[in-house]
């Protein structure tokens, strides 16, 4: 199946098996070194990427859903300004994810902070439940929440300054 999409800023036209998960497309066809997880459905949560700005688990996205979508993996996201906000929040809260979940967790934090920016009244429970999609216990919930809120705050302030 022919699929046209944008991955990490590159317009691509790919010939893929329509059911091939995005995580394997990234690993095997595009040699992306930032998506390495392959838990065969155990929901490790370590394969998150941004699809049209929203975090998705790439192993759950079949190739046929990629048509006309924009995907950003950690490969490009790590160079973006938003990642610097996230790093700043890690630093201020005094914890950062371990190397195993660093990339995926940062992408999910990005997506959640965008959501929180749009809908500031999103209940904490909802944020927590989305954060707990990552099966890695290197951080406690309170710290994770603080980080998401801090990132949202940094974004909000910048938006205010811009306007």
């Amino acid at each position: 199946m022919k699929i046209e999409c944008v991955i990490d800023g590159k317009m691509l036209s790919l010939n893929l098996n329509s059911n091939k998960p995005l995580s394997l497309v990234l690993q095997e066809d595009l040699d992306n070194s930032t998506v390495n997880a392959h838990c065969r459905g155990r929901l490790c949560g370590l394969c998150a990427v941004l699809m049209d700005n929203e975090a998705v688990l790439s192993c759950m996205v079949p190739a046929f859903e990629l048509n006309e979508k924009e995907i950003r993996t950690f490969e490009t996201f790590q160079k973006e300004r938003s990642m610097r906000d996230i790093e700043r929040a890690y630093d201020e809260v005094g914890v950062k994810p371990c190397e195993t979940c660093y990339q995926s967790r940062s992408i999910i934090i990005e997506s959640l902070s965008n959501k929180l920016l749009e809908r500031p009244n999103t209940p904490s429970e909802q944020i927590i439940s989305e954060l707990s999609v990552i099966d890695c216990s290197c951080m406690d919930t309170e710290d994770m929440l603080k980080i998401v809120k801090r990132v949202t705050d940094l974004k909000r302030r910048r938006n205010v300054r811009r306007s």
Partner: peptide, 8 residues
Amino acid sequence: LFSNPYRY
């Protein structure tokens, strides 16, 4: 037995 979900 622990297996890291990362494929290296």
